[in-house]
């Protein structure tokens, strides 16, 4: 009971709103937040893919250090970085144990560490980039690089509707709780209670399916009257929407700096 109370509190609509705002706009003032989304995408396009194909340990370490600096500049909480790296190491650990089991030996450690390093570089790069973009910037950026307008609409719609949907889910879940009867005995490891609440969590979607269907209908009708069926992918509309996007000096310096750093890694290591 205590557990479910905590869980429902965590899911309280106001709490989720706070969390969402924080996640979305928490990193507004950093250097990365001022860059153009295209710069960030381009930068990520390199650091999110290339590590897969680099096998020189020193270069990878160099990239890793670079990523640590960027995450620091982007003001990502060190705890997140730590947990992330720990998780990756843990995965590597399982692989190591399993490979020992299959007749491998400790020489497997090195390749696995390298793999972990690559994964860390990639993850840190994506954290740097995507935590530095607020939703509007991300969707404008995606629109700019040619993704369909429906995607940026969907992102905005998500932020619009989530609290409403969550609230409705919450109400329905509460109705189930109040009118149903929780199991008398918690069972081994609370298994009965957990199973009961999971069942409620699943069943609560039945009413939501119907009411969201009604919602979707009005929304699409409204979209039609707001011209968006016409406007989502229209070139003029895109231009208007993205008029604020400009590559600035800062963007070029950052890209050039990264390039110089990577070249020197390859040249001097």
């Amino acid at each position: 009971m205590e557990y479910t109370r905590k869980f429902t509190e965590k899911l309280s609509v106001e709490q989720v709103k706070i969390e969402l705002l924080n996640t979305a706009y928490g990193n507004g003032g950093t250097f990365f937040a001022k860059l153009d989304p295209r710069t960030l995408f381009l930068w990520y396009a390199y650091f999110g893919i290339f590590p897969w194909f680099i096998h020189e340990v020193m270069v990878l370490i160099g990239m890793f250090l670079f990523m640590l600096v960027t995450t620091y500049v982007a003001r990502i909480s060190p705890l997140i970085i730590f947990i992330l790296c720990l998780g990756l190491l843990g995965q590597g650990g399982y692989l190591l144990i399993a490979s020992l089991f299959f007749g491998g030996d400790w020489t497997s450690i090195l390749p696995l560490l390298i793999l972990t390093l690559k994964l860390s570089v990639i993850s840190l790069a994506s954290i740097t980039v995507f935590c530095s973009m607020n939703p509007e910037k991300l969707s404008n950026g995606l629109l700019k690089i040619g993704l369909p307008g429906q995607i940026s609409f969907s992102i905005a719609y998500g932020y619009r509707m989530l609290p409403t949907l969550l609230e409705e889910y919450h109400h329905v879940f509460q109705s189930f709780r109040l009118r149903g009867k929780a199991p008398e005995k918690h069972g081994f490891l609370y298994i009965n209670t957990i199973a009961y609440f999971i069942k409620l969590a699943v069943l609560s979607f039945y009413p939501l399916l119907l009411s969201t269907a009604k919602r979707a209908r009005t929304t699409v009708e409204a979209l039609e009257t707001k011209g968006s069926m016409y406007g989502f992918n229209h070139i003029e509309v895109k231009k208007l929407k993205l008029a604020g996007l400009k590559m600035k000096k800062r963007d070029y310096y950052f890209l050039a700096g990264s390039l110089v750093y990577m070249i020197s890694l390859f040249l001097f290591l």
Partner: peptide, 23 residues
């Protein structure tokens, strides 16, 4: 595939390929 691409000469590391598949 990710491990395949990410680890150089996967076959050279004994047991790794099998363990990936098993896990």
């Amino acid at each position: 595939l990710k491990v395949w691409v990410g680890v150089e000469e996967l076959e050279a590391v004994p047991g790794l390929a099998e363990s990936v598949v098993v896990i």
